[in-house]
Simulated scan of single mutants.
Amino acid sequence: MFGRLGSTHPPAGSRRLAHTARLAALATAVAMGGVAIAVTAAPSSAAACNGYVGLTFDDGPTGSTSALLNVLRNNGVRATMFNVGQNVQNNRAAAQAQVAAGMWVANHSWNHAHMTTMSQSQMQSDLSQTSSAIQSATGVRPQLFRPPYGETNSTLQSVASSLGMRQVLWDVDSQDWNGASVSAIVSAAGRLQNGQVILMHDGIQNTQNAIPQIMANLTSRNLCPGMISPSTGRAVAPDGGGGGNPTTPPPGGGGSCTATATTPNVWGDRYNTSVTVSGASSWTVVIGITSPQRVTTTWNGSFSWDSSGTVMTVRSNGSGNTFGFTTMMNGNSGARPQIRSCTAG
């Protein structure tokens, strides 16, 4: 049977611990009355991530893992999945799907027991068995460990370290295990700061429903989902497959590519973004837009949107490796789109 929802949280009282362009711009200006004088800005990179946060999901894989992965991929998210060993053993395909979707997999014990009550040898057996099950299913040896309930001591940390894993707790508890509403989960994630980690769970519908809003909030603050460093336990920029997953591609499958964005034209109420992809002729690029800004015109790519209207997925359509779009500022003149990922194939 799958892991117990909400079982990660600490017991009460002991909680511890995101040229064609010119013609398109002109067409947009004409369509809108186009009387504003355009100010052509020097090309500048689209807003870079000013920081990274670690989105983590415990207690998987579950019967809902496939749905969770779909939501994460549709929103351009890579996250860390703290898996329970016996769940991996019982659902190897779901664990494999996590890695195929670009997620980082980590150790969350064999069956979510209170590990601080165990002897050192029992701890060693539990964590070793879990890491072996994850590696057998996914080909990835975990470098991160999260103790069930957040309960830990020096012996457990030492055992994890001896197995090549760093212990990772959390900075923000989403309280999804405690019946938190979608808005409450979004609000909790809104407290994340650069380098911090949030606790969430696989198998909770409200958590899945909150992800688009969580990403919209992170984008508005120039924060991006990152990997958790095995060296520091803090969220850092993804390295294309880090966190112990050296062969893991970013969301969408295939290899990596590079997407470079510039904003060659800026008007008083809108601006153009031009994106050039290198390293692949067939590609998928995920871009975050800061609300209330909205894209009104697109060219040279196949564009789709998530439910929040703030995450845009662009796929190559045979028009070359440069695409673009016009964004209405809607009162927010400072924000620029964020390139979240570029995937070849």
Score class of each variant (00 low, 15 high):
G3S: 13
S7I: 01
A216N: 06
M215G: 00
A137Q: 01
F325Y: 15
S256V: 00
S308N: 09
N245T: 12
M328T: 07
S274P: 00
H201T: 00
D171N: 15
A21H: 11
A100R: 15
T138Q: 00
N107C: 08
N209H: 07
M227R: 08
G255A: 14
N83S: 12
Q135Y: 01
N50F: 02
S136E: 13
M81G: 03
P11Q: 03
P148Q: 04
R73D: 13
P264D: 10
D173G: 04
A344D: 04
I134Q: 01
V295R: 08
G309Q: 02
N178D: 15
G288K: 00
L127K: 02
M1H: 05
T248S: 15
L55A: 12
D59S: 06
W110N: 11
G301A: 15
N74Y: 06
T219P: 00
G331M: 13
S7V: 00
N107V: 02
N206A: 08
L223F: 11
T152L: 05
D306M: 08
G195D: 11
S183K: 04
R141F: 01
G85A: 11
N317C: 09
S136N: 13
T276H: 11
Q86A: 05
L223W: 03
N153I: 02
L69S: 09
P212I: 03
G255Q: 12
G318S: 08
P10Q: 07
G268H: 12
A21I: 07
H201W: 00
H108F: 05
S181M: 04
F145S: 03
D306Y: 10
T130C: 10
M328C: 08
P250I: 02
R191F: 04
N206H: 12
A133K: 01
T138V: 01
S131V: 00
R336F: 09
T62M: 09
G33E: 10
A261D: 14
G318F: 09
D126P: 04
S274L: 13
S304V: 06
W104G: 14
L223M: 13
L192Y: 11
T298K: 08
W267G: 14
V197N: 03
